[in-house]
Amino acid sequence: MKIFICCKQVPDVAMTIQIKDGKFISEGMNYVLNAYDASCVEESLVLKEKYGAEVTLVLIGDEAGKEALRKGLAMGADNAFHIMDPALNQIGSQAAAKVLQAFFKGRDFDFILTGKQAQDSDMGLAGGILSEMLNLPYVTNAVGLDMADNKVVVRRQGDEGVEVIHMPMPSLITCSNDMNDPRIPSLKGIMASKKKPMEQLSLADLGLSADEVLRESKKSSLKSFSLPPARKSGAKIEGDAQTLVATLMEKLTKEAKVL
């Protein structure tokens, strides 16, 4: 079985986010493998242990992106492709999907996994767009994966509960981090990841022109960043339980008028 995982390197959003003059300040940020993509790696390693598989990572990004690929390799993926090109700086979901479409052209695979969204943009479009470009069936927000009768059995967190969907192969699945708890790469894995194959590809290698990417990029553009408006804290009410409840009921009925 051949599994491809499309991944992204993102700033560690658990850190303090700084924005100055409408720009995101990247200095001092740690960059990590997108957590949803890490869940894809974990899930495919579990499938590999169960059924046997080759797990390949694909990442679009600059030189620093190699570190995210190495993390996936250190977890246990087999090999990696690093798509790096000056024309691909700061591209959005639609352009990224276009690049990946070119990458997958003529390649043989059973399914593609990718995070349900990237932690930096939280857009959640690239996976589904790529599927449509490749004319593949897809499902998003998977919380569980298994195989049965040559089909992928996907458990998806839907509006009404967990939906069970059978997907033919090849297909594409976007994964939630509720799917699993990704393994921490061991130091042995980190050292071994240096020796695993990592191939670098440019746009020209993919047979794609910068204009074709630009066409997708131009559909929408990122203008600036800002900090969300702070929500003001209101009154802290202290005292014994009776006082608390009496004060709250008074406030909710008379002041906020929500009860």
């Binding site: 959003v13 924005i19 932690q119 943009s121 929408s220 990122l222 960043f225 900090l227």
Partner: peptide, 11 residues
């Protein structure tokens, strides 16, 4: 975006 810690303006 970024876990709602920031906002972006897009066109």
């Amino acid at each position: 975006l970024m876990a709602a810690k920031a906002r972006s303006t897009m066109e």
